[in-house]
């Protein structure tokens, strides 16, 4: 959890806005540090977290979270964290082995054209059965996805992913007043192509941007690689807030450290001042 980012977003584990859909995206940079931030943030806040880990293994997230001061293994044992290990389970489905957990979440791999209804049903079941799992019952449920672009690579269409995110939004954010964080990765340059024949990830990003309430868009520096500034992050509040108009944007530069990250206004890095 990064204190500086909490200050920017005006939130803390003790008091955070409920019912938010936060979209994290990146282009020519790596935004996974923000996923780790939100994972440790919501675990500290005492929320019941459902994590769809499609990009990395559990031990990877566990190792990073340990550096941020949160133990995923403990949270999992307590029942606060429900982790879908996408890498392992997708292999089970593809090789035709019977899954250890017996979940049908990744059944779409057999026929990607049918859509992500089974994955949604897994999410719905895991966020709504609160009360039976230890300390997880206190806070609102949270869904984290890392990352949605993997689904596109697995043959799912953009429309199906948008339907999935819509249903998660309706269930987690609106019905249960929980929060949702999703990561999308975009490749290549942002092109103003008027034809509308753009790549899947671009269309996915646009569709999700229309759905979400807050976007964090991580980019590499336009001037190229730098040792002291790892990139810039654009924060955009898409919904109306108190005494603030919608579509408000702020741009920060960041540097990821060993155990955290620092955010600063453009051009105010300690390396250049």
């Amino acid at each position: 959890m990064f204190a500086e980012l909490n200050a920017i977003l005006n939130t803390s584990p003790d008091s955070f806005k409920q019912g938010e859909f936060i979209l994290v995206s990146d282009r020519r940079a790596d935004a996974s540090f923000l996923v780790h931030h939100f994972l440790s943030f919501y675990l500290r806040a005492g929320c019941k977290v459902c994590f769809l880990g499609l990009a990395q293994s559990f031990s990877h997230y566990n190792a990073v979270s340990q550096r941020l001061g949160v133990s995923l293994t403990q949270a999992k044992e307590k029942g606060q964290l429900l982790f879908l290990e996408g890498l392992k389970e997708s292999l089970d489905v593809l090789l035709g082995r019977t899954s250890d957990t017996g979940s049908r979440a990744l059944d779409f791999l057999r026929d990607p054209a049918v859509g992500l209804r089974c994955l949604y049903e897994f999410v719905q079941a895991s966020v709504s059965d609160s009360g039976d799992g230890g300390e997880g019952g206190g806070g609102p449920p949270v869904l984290l996805v890392d990352d949605l672009t993997v689904l596109l690579s697995l043959g799912v269409s953009v429309g199906s992913v948008l339907d999935f995110s819509h249903y998660c939004h309706a269930t987690v954010c609106s019905q249960l007043k929980g929060n949702m964080v999703m990561l999308v990765r975009c490749e290549g340059e942002e092109d103003e192509d008027e034809d509308g024949d753009e790549e899947g990830s671009e269309r996915l990003l646009k569709g999700l941007t229309h759905q979400c309430s807050l976007t964090l868009h991580v980019q590499g520096l336009p001037t190229g690689f730098c040792r002291d500034i790892h990139g810039q992050v654009e924060v955009c509040w898409r919904k109306t807030q108190k005494d603030k108009p919608p579509n408000q944007k702020k741009l920060f530069q960041y540097k990821v450290h060993d155990k955290g990250a620092s955010f600063f206004a453009r051009g105010t890095s300690s390396a250049v001042l």
């Binding site: 034809d195 509308g196 269309r203 646009k206 569709g207 229309h210």
Partner: peptide, 8 residues
């Protein structure tokens, strides 16, 4: 209508 989501 979110015009940027569809073909022109």
């Amino acid at each position: 209508l979110h015009s940027d989501m569809h073909h022109r």
